[in-house]
């Protein structure tokens, strides 16, 4: 009986970590748990960050001032994801979009649904669709996805930062 020669072995590495989100993001997520999107503003250039990481990399300063933004915005750009990603429960194809909330100077990635994928456009106006309030936690998953508002598209030049 010949034994099959192995050219690799699996070395199981299991380390557990206690993740933290950061103080600035923690403040943001605690507001998200109340259904509010609270951005932070740079004291120097007035750039508005959501979700905030606690700094404005343009200026290298902390963003302390908070302001609540609406849950409406526009699509800065997007991709339609066709391949399943390991560990990701979302079934493709789905839209991963850079959502620019009204009043924000950076975008974040979220889903867009309630529209034919072929109809999604850069500049399209969207609004958050929230989960049932009883399911809210300290996560952006409180927003199930964004959906089109039906308003006129914005010109993509609005995404340019104005000092």
């Amino acid at each position: 009986m010949s034994e099959e020669k192995k050219d690799f072995f699996v070395s199981d590495i299991s380390l557990s970590y206690q993740y933290t989100a950061g103080n600035a993001t923690t403040r943001f997520l605690n507001k998200v748990a109340e259904g509010k999107l609270v951005a932070q503003k740079c004291p120097k250039c007035s750039a508005v960050y959501v979700p905030p990481r606690g700094s404005c990399p343009r200026c290298g300063v902390a963003t302390e001032e908070e302001l609540e933004l609406p849950d409406t915005g526009a699509v800065e750009s997007f991709t339609i994801v066709h391949i399943p990603i390991p560990g990701n429960p979302i079934v493709p194809p789905y839209v991963s979009a850079m959502i620019r909330l009204d009043g924000a100077d950076i975008s974040f990635l979220h889903l867009i649904q309630e529209i034919d994928l072929a109809d999604i456009r850069i500049g399209m106006r969207v609004q958050a669709v929230w989960k049932d309030k009883s399911d809210w936690g300290t996560t952006l998953e409180n927003i199930k996805w964004f959906k089109p508002t039906g308003e006129d598209d914005v010109d993509p030049s609005v995404f340019k930062f104005k000092e």
Partner: peptide, 14 residues
């Protein structure tokens, strides 16, 4: 350092 993230650790010393 509890919740403090990288930015919040670095910025004060810089």
């Amino acid at each position: 350092a509890k919740a403090a993230n990288e930015v919040e650790l670095i910025m004060p010393v810089v």
